[in-house]
Amino acid sequence: MVESPGSVFINAFLANNFVLAMFLGLCPFLGVSSKLETALPMGAATTFVMFVASTTAFGVNALLTAFGLEFLRLIAYIVIIASSVQLVEMVLKKHSPALFRALGIYLPLITTNCAVLGVALFQTAREYDFVQALMFAAGAGAGFTLALLLMASVRERLALSEVPAVVQGTALSLMLAGILSLSFMGFAGLGG
C-alpha cells in the first residue's frame, strides 16, 4: 500500500484532522483556544516541534530497528520530543528573543501534547517513508493550527454572547468542538 505524499497531507490536515477526528492535542485545543492571537503562535510552535520530532523519530526508528531494539521505541521517542522542545527553546532564546517571547510560554506545554507524540507513533505504525513522514507532520501541524484557529474565532464571538451559567466552560467548548468535528466529517474520503 503506497499513499502519495499529497494524500497523506490531506488526510492528516482535513479528512482525519488530528484534533477533530483523532482527538490528539485536545489539552491545548481546549486550553489555549480562547483568543485568536494566541492560537496562531501556539499552532506554529507545535507544527515546528512536530517537524523536528517527525524527522528525528524517523532516524531513531531506523536505528532501533537495525539493532532489533523496537521495545525501546516509546521511551526513545518521548525523550527525543522532550529534549527537542528544550533545544528549540534554547535556540530561540539565544537567536530570536522576539519569537521566544511570543512562543515561550507554550513550548513546555508541547512536550505533553499528545499530537506531537502521535505524529511520531502513527508514522511508525503506518510505516511511512521519509517524504510521507514529513508530509504527515506538515498535515498534522496544519490541521492542529486550523482547528485551533476555528475554535478560537468561534470562542471570541461567544465571549460576547449570553450563555446560561451552567454550560459555560469546558462543556460548551466540547459541544462546539462536536459541531466542528461534525462539519469536518464532510471531508471524509477526500484523501482517497
Binding site: 500500500m1 499513499e3 494524500s7 482525519n16 471524509a188 474520503g189 484523501g191 482517497g192
Partner: peptide, 10 residues
Amino acid sequence: EGAAKGYADT
C-alpha cells in the same frame, strides 16, 4: 494479506 487506507485508519 492486503492493506489499504480506510475511513479511520489502515
